[in-house]
Amino acid sequence: MTTLSGPAVRSGPSVPAPRPRARRSWIGWGFMGPFMVVFALVFLAPIAYSIYLSLYRDQMVGGTSFVGLENYERAVGDPQFWSALGRVSIFLAVQVPIMLCIALLVALAIDSGRLYGKSFFRISIFLPYAVPAVVASLMWGFMYGTRFGLVGNINDAFGISLPNPLSPDLILASIGNIVTWEFVGYNMLIFYAALRVIPPSLYEAAEIDGASQRQVITAIKLPAIRGALVIATIFSIIGSFQLFNEPSILQSLAPNAITTYFTPNMYAFSLSFSGQQQNYAATVAIVMGLITMVIAYVVQLRGMRKEG
């Protein structure tokens, strides 16, 4: 900065310095403008509008009134909201580690180069991710049926009685199974891409040093893809908290096991569209967004700190 401003002062003090600087900044805005407009309209305005909505209450009798933070007070003390949050938290704690472990195993197996038909496995494990979540849920829903579905067929064929996957005790696990099936391939691809960029020279060095495959994995591969692991974990946390499609589709098959407040998103949805409580639904959405951000941020901090 000093080397630049030096000659400018020397060339003539009569030239006012701020003018070119001001012109420069406007040119910058010109480039930024279109983006800022779209960004404000598409990203900021909906958030601002939701916050605005969350400060009001619309009653069927009495109309709309400003209530300040009353909706937030209600959300904090709402047992249905907390039960929904508890459910997705259990889902997060159980399903995400299982899914990421499987994805990691598969990625390491494909990357090891010892797998016959590598590209076939890669594409077939990734394929479920290409199936829309709605279609996947419908498909699994049919398979879960104990009367006419796959579970029913197995029961008939072997004369056994498998537990009903759509019963209230098992429904969350059944949904976890669908989500794992859908997203193992996606996470596998993230890990695999990260493994591919490890320089081969590291492996050569390891071989010269006489390291075993296990040591190569723990000392080279895993540390090298830590970033990818953190990213996949954060995506999975967000995905778990936003759980909606799968339970919402299965609801028609298991209406009593999947309540209208099964997940926070479903709760917000039913509040808004069946209960006409858009204001409270906006509040629930905002609170849920904040909780998701905090947890994702904590995970990111932890992941990055270890790296440093």
């Binding site: 109309g63 709309t64 919402s248 808004s272």
Partner: peptide, 17 residues
């Protein structure tokens, strides 16, 4: 018919009374 959940958009609350 069964509700088509595909209809859900991110905009949960974009209506003003």
């Amino acid at each position: 018919r069964a509700m088509s959940a595909a209809a859900l958009t991110g905009a949960v609350a974009l209506t003003l009374a």
